Simulated scan of single mutants.
Amino acid sequence: MADQRKPVRKPAAQTPAKGKAVAPRPRTGEVAAPEPEGYTSLIEPRGAVSDFLAPVGGFGVTLSNMFRPTVTEQYPSEKVPAKPRYHGRHQLNRYADGLEKCIGCELCAWACPADAIYVEGADNTPDNQRSPGERYGSVYQINYLRCIFCGLCIEACPTRALTMTNEYELAGPTRAGMIWEKEDLLAPLRSGMLQAPHPMVEGTTDTDYYRGEVTSSTPAQVAWVQEHRPEDPTLPGGAGLDAANVPGPTAAVMAATVAAATKQGTR
């Protein structure tokens, strides 16, 4: 049978532009182009001893640590504090007067690569003002079975509402118990704060809150809370912050689970 293979067509030679002289590239066995004339490398050449020890140079870190004393942390009997920038459990922060920083924009949910965050926003009303401005986060969930603690949600938050704490002890008896709700994630109330909802500081806008110009609650806000919620524990003379800072049901169960595991593992 006749040979059915097609002839290989050689590429046409490129014609240099007029007025430009193109020097032919030398054909060598090296992958990179040869060094130009007059080039001097800044890397000092290795000696014979360095060339001899080069194959075992990668074991230097291993050999140097073999003779160091071994330090074992006695966890959970001795809990070593985490680094300041450790990525631990999330927290929804508040302003100095007690209003929530979350505006329900859902940017954290969009930025999450593991789809671990679910947010629903709602409109603030005169009787239900939970954050400065027009919107607040009515539903906020974080599924810690999916969360990879990358911190991208923190970078996406425009109001610094979502941050990460140093808490790393997260455990739960059920899968549903690893889904934290908004009441589990809210930061505890501090002195000078009023529990939301309540109006914004009189004469301010949401921009004033973002700039940190609101430093505490005002008498007008206290009067509004006294009128609408006279039994609020954050009012002057109320039950106090300990009564107001009740952890959410999921956070309470997880704290009890971690405490029991710590007690069982303590020597």
Rank of each mutant, 00 (worst) to 15 (best):
Q4Y: 14
R5E: 14
V8E: 11
K10F: 13
A12W: 05
Q14D: 10
A17L: 11
K18C: 02
G19W: 07
A21Q: 09
V22I: 15
A23W: 05
P24K: 07
R27W: 05
T28K: 01
P34A: 02
E35A: 13
E35K: 11
E35I: 01
E37D: 13
S41H: 02
L42H: 06
R46G: 12
R46S: 07
G47E: 05
A48S: 14
D51G: 06
D51P: 00
F52M: 09
P55Q: 03
G57S: 14
F59M: 05
F59D: 08
F59Y: 14
V61Q: 09
N65S: 14
R68M: 13
R68W: 03
P69H: 03
P69N: 03
E73N: 05
Q74L: 13
P76Q: 05
P76V: 09
P81Q: 05
R85M: 06
Y86N: 03
Y86E: 08
Y86K: 01
G88S: 09
G88C: 07
L92R: 05
N93Q: 13
A96H: 04
I103D: 13
C105H: 06
W110E: 12
P113K: 02
A116V: 06
A116N: 08
E120N: 04
G121D: 13
A122E: 12
D123H: 06
T125G: 01
S131D: 04
P132E: 04
P132Y: 06
P132S: 02
G133S: 03
G133D: 06
E134D: 06
E134K: 08
S138E: 12
V139E: 12
R146G: 02
R146I: 04
G151W: 08
A156L: 09
C157W: 10
P158C: 03
R160N: 11
L162H: 09
T163I: 11
M164W: 09
E167N: 05
E167Q: 15
Y168D: 10
G172F: 09
R175L: 13
G177W: 15
W180F: 15
W180D: 13
D184E: 15
L185H: 14
A187I: 10
P188S: 03
G192V: 15
Q195F: 03
P197W: 06
V201A: 11
G203F: 05
T204N: 06
D206E: 15
T207R: 08
D208S: 05
D208A: 09
R211A: 13
G212D: 10
G212I: 13
G212W: 13
T215Q: 15
P219Q: 05
A220Y: 01
A220P: 00
V222D: 00
A223T: 02
W224L: 00
H228E: 01
H228M: 01
H228N: 14
R229V: 02
P230F: 00
G237P: 00
D242V: 12
D242I: 08
A243T: 15
N245C: 08
V246E: 14
A251N: 11
A251T: 10
A255R: 14
A255M: 09
A259P: 02
A259C: 01
T262W: 07
K263S: 07
Q264S: 05
Q264G: 01
T266D: 11
R267Q: 10
R267E: 11
R267A: 14
